[in-house]
């Protein structure tokens, strides 16, 4: 299964959420590949704490795979990460694995040439032979990377592949409108996909949203000190919900809600159970949200029922 992680704006927590979901899937025994398609800023290596790929790798990353036709290096997080959580993957037979395909160090966005969709399809097919889930972390906005994967997934080779889209946005009025535009707008994913030869119904059915950095008023009592503040927040939250419903971004399209967690605001990293229970630096609710999103990804009924 291919999972495309997209967002209209930067700073939505797309990469950090995707990495954590990938980790949760690996923990459950899935073989997961994480592809850093954020060509303008290839930093997935940093989130996964893989020092040799912190800002991409030299000449053997995904940039080189596309522009120079070299092979794309695969880094097994259990072997290359400094994070205890990731190094522990593979300690038990019940674990799967998490493999990073990093970008090039100092790589930048590159325009799509005619041979790239075929090459991209070859990469996806190859990974599909070995991995249960491939998470493709795309550059924010209407990027070359997004266009590339839209064109690639419309190719006949991938007719039998299953793919899903997760569109990340913060829980704010502005972000909701932006994410809506990214999916449904004139130059959005659906319209572009249609031009690339996608079937509208199938593409439409594969679009889901993930709300990030959501303040949960029931839990985060400390963050809300005064009663008028709480009342305003509650009513505004209600307005945001109504607006999301109106924009076809309501419950049936909602793949996950990631609560606001200070640790992720300061340090984009993979959170494991020890961070919650022993070190108490992360919230249980955050881990639970990642876990729920991971479950949603493999829940066939959720993706069928729109």
């Amino acid at each position: 299964m291919l999972v495309f992680a997209a967002s209209d704006k930067g700073g939505t927590g797309r990469s950090v959420t995707s990495c954590n979901v990938a980790y949760r899937l690996a923990l459950r025994g899935e073989a997961v590949a994480y592809l850093d398609f954020d060509f303008g800023s290839p930093t997935a290596g940093a989130v996964l704490d893989i020092p040799k790929a912190e800002r991409g790798v030299d000449g053997s990353g995904l940039h080189s795979y596309f522009t120079r036709h070299t092979d794309a290096v695969e880094l097994d997080a259990a072997l290359h990460s400094d994070s205890d959580a990731l190094r522990d993957l593979g300690r038990y037979p019940s674990h799967g694995r998490l493999t990073l395909l990093p970008g090039d160090r100092d790589g930048g966005e590159f325009p799509i040439s005619a041979d790239m969709p075929a090459r991209c399809a070859q990469l996806f097919l190859k990974l599909d032979r070995e991995f249960d889930v491939c998470v493709v972390d795309l550059s924010a906005g209407r990027s070359y990377a997004t266009d590339l994967v839209l064109e690639t997934t419309a190719r006949p080779e991938l007719a039998n592949a299953s793919w899903r889209w997760l569109v990340f946005h913060r829980w704010s009025a502005q972000h909701i409108v932006a994410a809506h535009g990214l999916v449904f707008g004139d130059k959005g994913l659906l319209a572009t996909g249609l031009r690339r030869g996608h079937d509208r119904t199938r593409l439409d059915a594969a679009m889901r949203f993930v709300r990030t950095a959501v303040v949960d008023l029931g839990v985060d009592r400390g963050a809300v000190e005064r009663a008028p503040q709480a009342a305003w927040l509650r009513s505004y939250d209600q307005r945001l919900r109504e607006s999301a419903d109106r924009l076809r971004m309501g419950r049936s399209r909602l793949a996950g809600v990631i609560p606001y967690d200070p640790i992720l605001q300061w340090s984009e990293r993979v959170i494991d159970d020890a961070d919650v229970s022993r070190l108490k630096i992360a919230n249980q609710a955050t881990v639970q949200a990642f876990e729920d999103l991971a479950t949603r990804l493999s829940d066939q009924r959720f993706w069928e029922g729109l």
Partner: peptide, 16 residues
């Protein structure tokens, strides 16, 4: 593997 003769579905995911 890129040959259009194949249907490109993966009955079992395994390491090369």
């Amino acid at each position: 593997q890129a040959d259009p003769m194949l249907d490109h579905s993966t009955p079992l995911r395994a390491r090369t």
